[in-house]
């Protein structure tokens, strides 16, 4: 009896059917012609990066110890003493940054090609959720290092939730696992980072892709109609991207190795404390206005951003006016966020 038959007996599914489904769903997935342009494949990039984050994240968790005494020391141990440790950590760190960048590019592309419009409104909302999940990943991730920046970012970041009306105090207690930032906060963040968020992310990504597949990719105007199969053209593209992004991140790791900072000191706030760059717009904004107003406006912005596909139709019945208005709002948002980021990065 051959191995194959032996196995088939014990795992009796219809293999012909399986191959057929695989072919229909993946290999022969119709890809519209415009996606031969790299710019229109920006959705694959965050997915590749996410997978790499999963791999390097698993590797990091072999050595990371989530306790206030050991967190920093174990990251130092990984970076300085474990063979290839700086590389694994470097890829994880650069991966998080590049993932935010890739998502921003993807969102920009989708927004300015109006791909969120009926019937794809829900997928836009799911996409925005993915972006928020990524930011939550990043925030909990860099808190785990438990250096000065991490400790104070955690302290300040969680304190903001206190301002939420009515449930603020409860939320703070929930996030910190106590009134102050303690060992409980660290284990909580660790669990959120390595269990809760990855699982949620997997599910939401699945929803995102299913919705995408059932609708098909939206096709912008000005491209020849027609489709080509996922394999080999698009499949190769993904491999090339993966190889390229791994090379880039590895090189970045050598040129800009992941830093350590100084261990957390709850008794002393460093003079120059800043969050990671992708939080600069909201950080700068919160410095400009009263805290409660800032939080309210930020929440309003996020909600507006999320439900834009439903807000846009309220503006006008004319599609051209809508487009113009969306472009205007989109451009304004970019100018505003880039402006705040640059301000925080170079002039603060």
């Amino acid at each position: 009896m051959s191995m194959k038959e032996w196995f088939k007996e014990r795992f009796p599914i219809d293999y012909e059917k399986f191959v057929e489904i695989n072919e229909n769903i993946f290999l022969k997935e119709p890809i519209p012609n415009h996606m031969k342009k790299w710019w229109y494949c920006s959705g694959a990039m965050p997915l590749i990066l996410f997978m790499l984050q999963v791999v390097t994240g698993i590797l990091l968790s072999f050595y990371f110890v989530p306790s206030p005494e050991m967190a920093f020391e174990s990251v130092r141990h990984i970076t300085e003493e474990i063979r290839m440790g700086f590389w694994v950590r470097g890829i994880h760190r650069w991966g998080s940054n590049l993932m935010v960048i890739a998502l921003l590019l993807h969102i920009t592309r989708v927004f300015f090609t109006n791909a969120y419009r009926k019937p794809r409104e829900l997928n836009w909302i799911v996409g925005v959720m993915l972006f928020l999940l990524t930011l939550a990943f990043a925030f909990t991730g860099y808190s785990l290092l438990n250096n000065q920046l991490a400790y104070w970012a955690t302290t300040v970041g969680t304190n903001m939730f206190k301002q939420v009306p009515v449930v603020g105090g409860l939320l703070l207690d929930f996030l910190r696992g106590g009134e102050d930032v303690t060992a409980n906060t660290l284990t909580r963040f660790f669990m959120i980072h390595v269990m809760f968020l990855p699982l949620t992310m997997f599910l939401v990504i699945a929803v995102h892709i299913i919705i995408l597949r059932v609708h098909g990719v939206s096709e912008p105007e000005g491209f020849p109609k027609g489709h080509y199969a996922f394999y080999p053209h698009h499949f190769f593209k993904i491999i090339i991207l993966t190889l390229f992004i791994l090379s880039v991140m590895s090189a970045l790791t050598v040129i800009f190795p992941p830093g350590l900072g100084t261990p957390a000191d709850p008794a002393q706030t460093p003079l120059h404390i800043k969050p990671e760059w992708y939080f600069f717009p909201s950080y700068r904004f919160l410095k400009l206005v009263p805290l409660l107003v800032g939080i309210a406006l930020t929440t309003a912005f996020v909600l507006g951003f999320m439900f834009w596909p439903f807000i846009e139709p309220i503006i006008s019945k004319d599609l051209k006016v809508r487009t113009k208005f969306s472009y205007f709002v989109g451009s304004l948002t970019i100018v505003f966020t880039v402006g705040l980021t640059v301000w925080e990065m170079f002039f603060a």
Partner: peptide, 29 residues
């Protein structure tokens, strides 16, 4: 062309990974 690109980027990645293997981080402790 894509196949060639895969080949080229594979080689590039291998080169970078070999360089990585030779890099050591300075001990801060």
């Amino acid at each position: 062309a894509q196949q060639w690109l895969i080949g080229i980027f594979s080689v590039l990645l291998v080169v970078i990974l070999i360089i990585i293997a030779g890099v050591e981080m300075k001990a801060s402790k």
